[in-house]
Simulated scan of single mutants.
Amino acid sequence: MDWKQEIVLCRDVAAIVGPVGGRAATTPASGRLLYDFVLHNRCGRVLELGFAHGNSTCYMAAALDELGGGSILTIDREAARLREPNIIELLAATGLAKYVEPIFAQSSYNWELLGLLERQRDGHTTRPLFDFVFVDGAHTWETDGLAFVLADKLLRPGGWILFDDIHWTIAASKAASGRRPTTVIDPAERVPQVGRVFALLVMQHPNYERFEVHGNWGWARKRRTRQEEALPEQAVSRLYETHS
C-alpha cells in the first residue's frame, strides 16, 4: 500500500468536506482517524447511525476506496436531506457515492434497524453484518441505549463500536448555541447521556472489551471467537499514537 498516496486521498476528501458543518461536524483530524481505522482494520462493512452533512461518511468511504471495495449503511432523519450541502451532494463531490447507502428515516434509525434485524433473522439468532459501527446521532439515553442493543446483534465478533460525544450534554449544547435555558431545568439535560450508554451498557456488557476513551470518543471491541483471535488489527491506542 502506498502510504503517500493514501495521505493524498484523505487530504483530497478533507479539502472538500472540511469546511462543511461548522463546529459540530467531524473535523479533518477526526476524519483522518476514522479513515485510518477503517483502512488498517479492513472494515469492509460499516454501519453509521447519524450522518448530518455526511462528513464522517466521506472519510470512511475514502478508506473503502483505498481498500478497493466495501460498503457503508448510514442512517439519519429525513431532516438531514435539507442540510446544505447534504450527504448526497458531498458524496457526489468526493466521487465516493458508490460505497454508501444513505437512508433518510421518517422516524429514528432504530426503526430502520428493526427492518434490518428482521432481514438478518435466522431462526432464533441474527446473522451479523458489520465490522464497525459508528454512533453519532440522537445523543439521548432512550434512543442510543436501544441503538446499542440493536447494533450489537448486527456487529460481527471482533468488530468495533464507536460512540461520539460521550461528554456532550443538552444543557451545554444550548449554552454553546446561545439559546437561553428554560426556567425549570430538566435534570436529564445536564447528564452526558451517550456517556451513560457507554459506561452502563457497553462497558458492563460481557461480550465487549478493549474499552478506550479519547476525548469525546468511546471505543469498544466485541469479543472475538477463538478462530478470529489470530487475525491482525491495529489497536485504537496505537492509532492515536501515530496521530499525536
Rank of each mutant, 00 (worst) to 15 (best):
V149D: 08
Q193E: 11
Q106R: 03
H167N: 13
D165N: 06
Y99E: 11
A175N: 01
K98Y: 02
G123T: 01
A188H: 13
F134I: 13
E142W: 00
V135T: 11
D136H: 07
L146D: 08
H124C: 06
A188C: 10
F132E: 12
V191N: 07
L162F: 07
A176K: 03
D165K: 03
R127G: 02
R127L: 13
F104H: 07
Y109N: 07
T182A: 14
P192I: 08
P102Q: 03
A105V: 10
H139I: 00
F104M: 06
D165P: 00
D164W: 09
E101M: 14
W141M: 03
G178P: 06
P181W: 06
A171R: 10
K174R: 15
T125W: 15
F134K: 13
V191P: 02
A172G: 11
D122W: 06
D164Q: 13
L162G: 03
W141P: 00
F104K: 07
D165G: 00
H124N: 12
H167A: 14
V191R: 12
S173F: 10
D144Q: 13
T140V: 09
L154P: 00
V135W: 05
K153C: 05
F148G: 07
Y109L: 04
L154I: 08
G178V: 04
R156T: 10
G95E: 10
Q120I: 06
T94L: 08
S177M: 12
G145E: 11
P181K: 04
A175K: 08
S108M: 09
Q120A: 08
L155T: 02
S107M: 05
W168C: 03
R190Q: 13
D131N: 11
I185A: 03
S107Y: 07
A188P: 05
I185K: 01
K98Q: 15
Q106W: 01
D164R: 07
V133G: 06
T183W: 12
D165V: 02
T143M: 04
F104Q: 10
L129D: 10
H124A: 10
A105W: 13
Q120D: 09
I185M: 02
D164T: 07
S173G: 09
V191Y: 09
D152L: 08
L146A: 08
D136F: 08
L116Y: 10
R127D: 08
A138C: 00
I170C: 07
E142V: 01
G137F: 14
G115N: 09
K174Q: 15
